[in-house]
Design a protein around this nucleic acid. Structure first.
Lengths: 179, 179
DNA sequence: TCTCAAATATGATCGCGATCATATGAGTGT
DNA sequence: ACACTCATATGATCGCGATCATATTTGAGA
């Protein structure tokens, strides 16, 4: 059953969006091609009409996710508060793709790492602009970004809710105190 | 071919050590039971005499790795410098198990998460003792730990060596400047 | 309208890896 | 020494998932 060219582009978008969400939620290895296609409302067969391989899909999914999230970050304190919120911790599927996938991309082929690098660089640049300070803005941005991602990953790894909350709250307070 | 009880305990240790290294280096999913056993100098068959499942192995490997690394952290500035060094970034197999596996453990069963939680808690406690400041020592420790892990993960994810070095260096400088 | 090619669906294939079954042979207690 | 148990080795099994082959239907261009 052939579909409109626009429908096909829409399908491709759906696949990417579904993959991006599923990868962030469950991890790259835990998500199969069939599951992604099903989540996109299609069957597994047509996958290779859109992507060369599963790894190709991941690279493009990262690239897209990095672009999507790119909009955030205007007001720095608000961004930090949102980033380190329990809501963000508990909803990885719609959350920061770097926090969810940066550690994993180390084991993926070059294309995925390149997409991740682009996203990280863009986020650092965006944070740099959001930092009020004039001197050492970029340094502040990089340190802040590292602390954000580290805290979110730790808060998600821990199985004790109290400790998890503490990591989020204390990291936020720590960043606010100095600077 | 039966072996000495001590030999068996030694084999078990070898398996755990090999698994810990391999998981940190290549990721949990990328490492099979056979590969672990081979790295330990054994064949795949005897695996289930030592562990109930691959997941059981991971949980115990994390627990052991967390204990091993527990010794580090006496002098805080030195620890930070070592942690954020290119050498640590480039040798994940012998590096911090949290930086390598914390993001992954989110997708693993309860036992693995529990072991990770214990390790994280221990590390936070250790850092708390290493912080000179009297007030807000724990806060400082948590924020520092988050920044360390986040920076290492970012530095490992990026495929541009210059950016990777910059992340390590600037995060270190950032942490030194305030505090 | 009439082809024709393209997009998707259905249904193999194929290898890999976790787990299990059986064999082997050497520690262990008597 | 002897029987016996246990740790390991060898060799299935079994399911899952990436990838590919074929069929089907319908947009798109003439």
């Amino acid at each position: 059953m052939r579909v409109t060219q626009e429908q096909m582009r829409e399908n491709r978008r759906r696949i990417l969006a579904a993959a991006s969400r599923l990868y962030r939620d469950k991890g790259y290895d835990a998500v199969g091609v069939a599951e992604v296609m099903k989540a996109a409302g299609l069957t597994h067969g047509g996958f290779y009409g859109h992507f060369a391989s599963k790894e190709d899909l991941m690279a493009q999914a990262i690239a897209q996710a990095a672009t999507e999230v790119a909009g955030r970050g205007g007001d720095l304190p608000a961004f930090v508060a949102t980033y380190l919120s329990p809501a963000h911790r508990d909803d990885a599927a719609d959350g920061c793709p770097m926090a969810a996938l940066a550690a994993d991309v180390r084991h993926r082929p070059a294309a995925a790492r390149a997409a991740m690098t682009t996203g990280i660089r863009a986020q650092i640049d965006r944070l740099t602009e959001a930092v009020p300070d004039a001197a050492d803005r970029r340094r502040e941005a990089i340190g802040t970004y590292a602390a954000l991602i580290g805290a979110l990953i730790l808060a998600r790894a821990v199985d004790d809710p109290a400790l998890s909350d503490e990591i989020l709250d204390e990291t936020r307070a720590w960043m606010a105190s100095d600077a």
